[in-house]
Nucleic acid binder design. Structure first.
Length: 422
RNA sequence: GGAGACGUCGCAUAGUCUGGUCUAGUGCGCCACCCUGCUAAGGUGGUAACGGGGCAACCCGUUCGCGGGUUCAAAUCCCGCCGUCUCCGCCA
């Protein structure tokens, strides 16, 4: 949720953000009007209520006829209080509904849609397979050869976009995730294994139930949602708390399964395990002061890049355009690894600065000089199942074996090469 | 799944039976000052959040797990829900 004060004091800033995202501008004026209505009805209610309370004290002290007379007069007042209360509730609900639909204020992201990203940098050089004299195989081909990925049985058991990681495939995923966890712990993060089912309030608070609620699995019978990332649970972790950030940001590394319906992705990435309904991820999550958020975002990006280096992949960093940002994000950087068989870059990490947007909904604050203030939240990927795709393709050898990047060897018992089983 | 107990301003508690002086008391913790003078102890005062109004001092309102209801008036009475604990049942 955006800051209502910003909306009041500087509606043009909100309009500019909406424009950059390609979102509805009318929402801004509708919210302003609802806010004005709410405040005026609140003032009405409060003055009646103050009167009622004052008279209540007189009633308590009065006796006999005097008391009966007072009670007669307060009945009318009680009805008025009730009516005004209803008006306030109505105006408030309307305002909430409108505010909920306004995504976070963009901060520094390029304007435009999915194609309008800015490449921040490119690191490493994609291999020249032609020069090496062989045609690269795609990750599924390689994965099946290694006995690492089984999509056929995944579909048999659970339907399309499900898979089994088998043998060395399972080990490779664990290696990626453990390397990510170790990196996080080395950088001072608190490792966390998080719930993957959360309440509607938690899901709403993190901004995943707005425009993109189609992406989310819901268990109707229990009124719970399956998370698409541990960010959801980690953002809810300090919900309704006043936290102490005087020693710097609170950093958590969440390990969890992630579930996504992939409702809008029919026909996209259908082969292999690039886009699946369930995967695992190690996610960095940081609560920090607003003033420190931009610097923290750069730190998260740097840690992601360190992981990219550890798995020895050529990649680029992109600054995502406003129209392609999530609801909660003010700015987002992705690390995309080169995918040789598709001659394109594939998103492996994504780090978002959500500024105060999530924290305001979830009511996470810190002590300030006067009272409290909402903190900023940030998140970023440190390792996922999808990394297997890029690792297999980029480190493949002519015989279908795959070289294990040095950063992962300690997690695979020193294994240097994954050998085909057939 | 069943039964019971509980949920109060950081923590611990009083208040609920018997609705109104609860403007929610007390202890601990924390902050400031004072006294004292050194392994300390004591005194005084202050210490919730949110919203509205105001240049400000301040004023008003909301919040006693959440949501309804009764009433002139609800921490207190009624209903529903959520959570915690104990016991029982079932199951891995």
């Amino acid at each position: 949720m955006i800051d209502i004060r910003l909306l009041r004091d500087n509606p043009d800033a909100v309009r500019a953000s909406q424009r950059a995202r390609g979102e509805d501008l009318d929402l801004v004026d509708a919210a302003l009007a609802a806010d004005a209505r709410r405040r005026s009805s609140l003032a009405e209610f409060e003055s009646r209520r103050a009167e009622q309370k004052a008279m209540g004290k007189q009633v308590a002290q009065a006796t006999g006829d005097e008391k009966a007379a007072l009670i007669g007069r307060t009945k009318q007042l009680a009805q008025e209080v009730k009516d005004h209360q209803a008006a306030v509730n109505e105006a408030e609900a309307e305002l909430d509904e409108l505010l909920f639909r306004i995504p976070n204020i963009v901060e520094g992201a390029p304007a435009g849609g999915e194609e309008d990203f800015v490449t921040v940098k490119a690191v490493g050089t994609p291999r020249d397979f032609a020069a090496e004299g062989f045609e690269p195989r795609d990750h599924l081909d390689l994965g099946e050869g290694l006995g690492a990925i089984d999509t056929q049985r995944g579909a048999k058991v659970s339907g399309s976009r499900f898979y089994f990681l088998t043998g060395v495939g399972a080990r490779l995923e664990l290696a990626i995730l453990q390397a990510a966890m170790d990196k996080a712990v080395a950088e001072g993060f608190t490792p966390m294994i998080t719930p993957t089912l959360v309440t509607p309030e938690t899901m709403r608070g993190t901004g995943f139930l707005g425009e993109h609620s189609d992406e989310v699995y819901r268990l109707e019978r229990d009124d719970l949602y399956l998370v698409g990332t541990s960010e959801v649970a980690l953002a809810g972790y300090h919900g309704d708390e006043i936290i102490d950030l005087s020693d710097g940001p609170k950093r958590y590394a969440g390990w969890s399964a992630c579930y996504r319906r992939e409702a809008g992705s029919h026909g996209k990435d259908v082969r292999g395990i690039i886009r699946v309904h369930q995967f695992h991820k190690v996610e960095m999550f940081s609560y920090c002061s607003v003033d420190d958020a931009e610097a923290e975002h750069q730190r998260l990006l740097a840690w992601e890049e360190a992981m990219m280096a550890a798995v020895e992949l050529p990649y680029r960093v992109i600054d995502t355009a406003a129209g392609d940002l999530g609801t909660s994000a003010a700015r987002k950087f992705d690390c995309e690894a080169w995918l040789p068989t598709q001659q394109r870059y594939l998103e492996l990490t994504s780090t978002s600065n959500c500024t105060t947007f999530q924290a305001r909904r979830l009511n996470v604050r810190e002590r300030a000089e006067h009272g409290t203030r909402t903190v900023a939240t940030l998140n970023g990927t440190l390792g996922t199942t999808r990394w297997i795709v890029a690792i297999l393709e980029n480190h493949q050898q002519p015989d279908g074996s795959v070289r294990v990047p040095e950063g992962l060897r300690p997690y695979l018992g020193g294994l240097e090469v994954l050998e085909p089983v057939r």
